[in-house]
């Protein structure tokens, strides 16, 4: 088990480095720079700014500088929000994004697994068919449609939830979290239903039945864990999906999370900011995949030896 974690972490570091370098060089290939404002700056100021931020050095040297600073936890200064370092911006945005993403995946798991269980128990009946239909619709709901639509209904028309910002209490979280969670919940419901349908046909369920166990006990003790294996392997892609979804949701609901900084940064060529966000995202996803691996091992001991 421990060996598995260590092995995963060993592969995580080169992966992370690769992502950072790839993004670094990609951004620098782009025409245009961070100081192309509305009015062009005079050449001297431009040169001075370039020098301050080390942009006049050769590309590989800049890359090396960046990575070595990163290793010490320094993300560098933001080029557009000039009064802030990237670390400060990230420290502000990360808690918001993490809260959104964490709550969304919890909600999706609770709704998805419950719905999948209900459908599997009632397999072939009306309940099953309606749940699966709803799940299919839910998976096809893009956050950039549900987000604004929710805001329109509950914010503008009914006026019961705030349309933007992080004000009063926790009610600002409701719509963004729901918009993020719906497609993931739909996918999890489908996976749970399909997983249970497969597992309940397997031989070890018949063995359990032969022991005269009640059906509910068979379902929860013998059936559910292996049935959730596909759900666990979906968690990695789901996390990546949530982070992308968060970009939209933060934009739609005007929340100062990482996603908004990312889009703003990309559009304004704020290299250190974009790199910082990409690095953090990649790190989060790698961590999440590791977590999914651990769940895997619990669900099915055969995978512990992986």
């Amino acid at each position: 088990m421990l060996a598995l974690i260590i092995r995963r972490l060993m592969t995580a570091i080169p992966t992370l480095l690769l992502i950072i370098l790839a993004s670094f060089f990609l951004m620098r290939l782009a025409p245009g720079g961070p100081f192309d404002g509305e009015r062009p700056l005079d050449p001297e100021t431009q040169a001075a700014l370039q020098q301050t931020y080390g942009l006049d050095k050769p590309l590989w040297e800049q890359a090396w500088l960046y990575v070595s600073r990163l290793a010490q936890g320094d993300f560098g200064p933001s080029l557009v929000y000039r009064d802030f370092t990237v670390s400060e911006l990230v420290a502000q945005g990360l808690p918001i994004s993490l809260t959104l993403g964490g709550l969304a995946i919890l909600l999706a798991l609770v709704i998805g697994v419950t719905a999948g269980l209900c459908a599997a128990v009632q397999a072939g009946k009306m309940v099953d068919k309606s749940i699966m239909m709803l799940a299919t619709v839910a998976t096809a709901l893009p956050t950039f449609v549900t987000g604004p639509a929710l805001a329109l209904f509950f914010g503008l028309w009914m006026g019961i939830l705030p349309v933007s910002g992080t004000g009063n209490g926790l009610s600002w979280l409701v719509m963004p979290v729901v918009a993020l969670a719906l497609p993931v919940a739909g996918a999890i419901a489908k996976l749970t239903r399909a997983g249970l349908a497969t597992v309940l046909q397997q031989d070890h369920i018949r063995t359990a039945r032969a022991r005269g166990l009640p059906e509910t006990k068979i379902l929860f003790k013998h059936g559910l864990r292996p049935a959730l294996v596909p759900v666990a392997s979906y968690l990695g892609p789901a996390a990546a999906g949530l982070l992308t979804g968060a970009v939209v949701v933060e934009t739609v609901f005007g929340l100062p999370g990482l996603g908004r900084y990312f889009v703003q940064g990309a559009l304004n060529r704020d290299y250190p900011l974009v790199l910082g966000v990409v690095t953090l995202y990649a790190g989060l996803i790698i961590l999440f995949n590791l977590f999914a691996d651990l769940i895997y091992g619990w669900l099915d001991p055969r995978m512990r030896e992986g």
């Binding site: 992502i19 993004s23 951004m27 990309a266 990409v278």
Partner: peptide, 19 residues
Amino acid sequence: DGLYALPFMFIVILLMVVF
């Protein structure tokens, strides 16, 4: 597998910005 684990959408966004 490695690519699956990446925040690929962000790379695409970068591509769009760059090219």
